[in-house]
Simulated assay, not measured.
Amino acid sequence: MNGGRATPHRGGDTGWPGVHGKRVLVTGGTRGLGEQIVRLLAAEGARVATCARTARGLDALAASLGSSVFTRPLDVTAPEELEEFVAATGKRFGGLDGVVACAGGSRGGGFEQADAEDWAATWEVNVGHAARLVRAAVPYLRKAGGGSAVVISSISGWKPGPHAQYGVAKSAQIHLAASLARELGPDGIRVNAVSPGSMLIPGRRWDRMRREDPDAFARFVAAEFPGGAPVAPQEVARVVAFLLSDWSSGISGAHLPVDRAQNAPSPDGY
């Protein structure tokens, strides 16, 4: 390590430094995109910490990855739990070089059905947790000479679709990244937002739709995906790894959609 920046280890014609030796904390790392980010970072030689609500998924992840991953079950919206995990990770790894706010979700139905508690819960699990993660990590990133924070937003944060409380929270994450990039830039800390499109994740909404109603899925793809298919979580994970690497040193305050030029975020309207 050198000032929080990993020494290039691959050589070759590209000199790609990757994330080898980076110390990274990822929230929500046991399913879907979060799991793919954790697995890619670990495979690339990073030291990775991750958290999720239940121990079961974390235990399975740790068993498959071994000592390269540090896990803890926690609720990212619970007071101090996330901050304590950041501190524990910094102590265990001797610092931090990057964080990824991947945990997220939505509560409540349509606009007339979602109440104030649904809006507050959706905001906290997306925007609140991301802000607290970055804030808790700042002392470690600053001590390392700078680092990278990646906030996972969504296509719903910049292309309208139901439900409103989710889209508003995801839009706020994009603004959060841009604002923090300006505020933390003097410390060498970069902050960026990544907005995945509708991803095919086993057992999740679009995968179920593909299996249970293939005709509706085909219509959705034909209408909304110029590239002919939804984006895969592995493709998004590679973009996140790039933003954590030193090769992205000139990128901060950016919003990077990874959606194959998808149009509407769902077949439900708009």
Rank of each mutant, 00 (worst) to 15 (best):
M1W: 02
N2W: 10
N2H: 10
G4K: 13
G4R: 11
G12I: 03
D13T: 07
D13W: 04
W16N: 09
W16F: 08
V19T: 14
K22L: 14
R23S: 06
V24Y: 03
G28M: 06
T30N: 04
Q36G: 08
V38F: 00
A42I: 08
A43Q: 10
A46G: 14
A46I: 13
R47G: 12
A49T: 04
R53F: 03
L61E: 11
A63E: 15
L65R: 05
G66K: 09
S67T: 15
S68H: 03
T71H: 03
P73H: 02
L74D: 14
L74K: 04
L82Q: 11
F85C: 06
V86P: 12
R92W: 15
F93H: 06
G94E: 14
G94Q: 13
D97P: 07
G98I: 05
V99Y: 11
V100P: 07
A103E: 13
S106R: 08
A114W: 00
A114P: 12
D118P: 02
T122N: 10
T122P: 06
W123T: 12
N126M: 01
G128E: 08
G128F: 01
H129T: 15
H129M: 14
A131Q: 10
L133V: 10
V134M: 01
V138E: 09
P139T: 07
K143D: 15
S148A: 15
V151C: 07
V151M: 03
I152G: 00
K159T: 11
P160S: 05
Q165P: 06
V168Y: 07
K170H: 07
A172V: 04
Q173Y: 05
I174A: 00
A178L: 12
A181K: 00
R182H: 14
E183S: 00
P186Q: 15
P186L: 05
V191Q: 12
S195C: 12
I201F: 00
P202H: 04
W206M: 05
R208F: 06
R208M: 08
R208V: 07
R210A: 02
R211G: 03
R211L: 12
P214A: 01
P214E: 10
F217G: 01
A222N: 11
E224Q: 08
F225N: 03
P226T: 00
A229N: 10
V231A: 08
A232H: 15
Q234H: 10
V236M: 04
A237Y: 06
A237S: 09
A241H: 07
F242L: 06
F242R: 10
L243P: 04
L244S: 04
L244V: 08
D246V: 01
W247C: 03
G250W: 05
S252A: 12
S252C: 07
G253F: 01
A254N: 09
H255R: 09
H255F: 03
L256T: 11
L256V: 10
P257L: 02
V258I: 02
V258K: 02
V258T: 01
D259Y: 02
N263Y: 10
A264L: 13
P267Q: 00
G269W: 10
G269Y: 09
